[in-house]
Simulated scan of single mutants.
Amino acid sequence: MTERAGHTVAVEVASLETAVTAARISAETETPLLLVSSPDAAAQGGCLWFLEILRQANAEVPAARLAMALDCGDAAGFALEALDCGITGVIYRGEDPVRTKLGQLAELHGASFLTERPRTLFLDEQPDPEAACRAWIKMESP
């Protein structure tokens, strides 16, 4: 089973600072945001790093409506590890039959499973992440 980000606005974050910025704007605008890791971030930072970013952003801004998607590239082992450590959204671009089996496992874990990266704005590259996030929400919201 494959899910897409749908109408949730997706932003790419690579630091706690930009995740907290996104959380503040999510709360202020009452917009659910999908925090997406950088491409192949599971191989670089691991799942616990990304889980901790979400935990701290939620702790700083409890009113934020945040979900997460850790990009595991085509590495099935990283996708499995992400699901096992509690990541609630996985991006996996590998081939079948592994993709189908991981999708079924994600469903059992209650996690979203994406087979492609959603359209995102990379907040860490923006000179003014707050203004960029606000503009992105306006542009991406239905």
Rank of each mutant, 00 (worst) to 15 (best):
P39T: 06
L54E: 11
V36N: 11
E116D: 10
L108F: 07
C47Y: 04
S38A: 15
D124W: 11
D124Q: 10
A43K: 07
G94F: 02
T100F: 08
Q56R: 15
L123I: 05
Y92S: 04
R65T: 10
M68T: 12
A59M: 12
T120P: 01
K101Y: 10
W49V: 14
Q44Y: 15
R55S: 15
G94L: 00
R93E: 06
L48W: 04
I53C: 06
C133D: 01
S37C: 10
V90Q: 08
A63F: 03
G73E: 09
A132E: 07
D40Q: 13
G46A: 05
A79Y: 10
S38M: 11
A131K: 03
A75M: 07
A131R: 01
F122A: 05
A63Q: 14
Y92I: 02
L54W: 03
S112Y: 08
E107H: 04
R117I: 03
L66C: 09
R65D: 09
E95Y: 03
D40M: 09
Q126G: 08
C133E: 09
M68N: 03
D40E: 15
Q44V: 14
L123T: 07
D96T: 04
L108P: 00
G77K: 14
L105D: 12
Q44E: 12
A41D: 12
G86H: 05
A69G: 13
A111H: 08
Q44M: 13
E52P: 04
A63G: 13
E81A: 15
R134S: 10
P97S: 10
P62Q: 02
L121Q: 02
G89W: 06
I87G: 04
V98W: 05
A41M: 11
W49N: 14
L102T: 06
S37F: 09
T100V: 07
L51H: 14
A111F: 06
G94H: 00
P97D: 11
D96Y: 03
G103S: 07
W49R: 14
D84E: 15
L83A: 11
C85L: 13
E130S: 04
A135E: 13
G46Y: 08
E95G: 02
P97V: 01
A63E: 14
V61A: 02
Q104H: 12
A57K: 05
L83R: 08
K101H: 15
R55A: 15
P39V: 01
P39Q: 05
R93V: 00
R117H: 07
G77C: 06
P129E: 00
R119D: 09
G46F: 10
C47P: 13
F50V: 11
A132M: 09
S38P: 06
E116N: 01
A79D: 07
C133F: 00
A63S: 08
V61N: 09
D124Y: 09
L121H: 02
R55G: 05
T115C: 13
C47D: 15
Q126A: 11
L123Q: 11
A76K: 08
G89F: 07
E95R: 10
C85V: 14
A75T: 02
R117T: 01
E60Y: 13
S38Y: 07
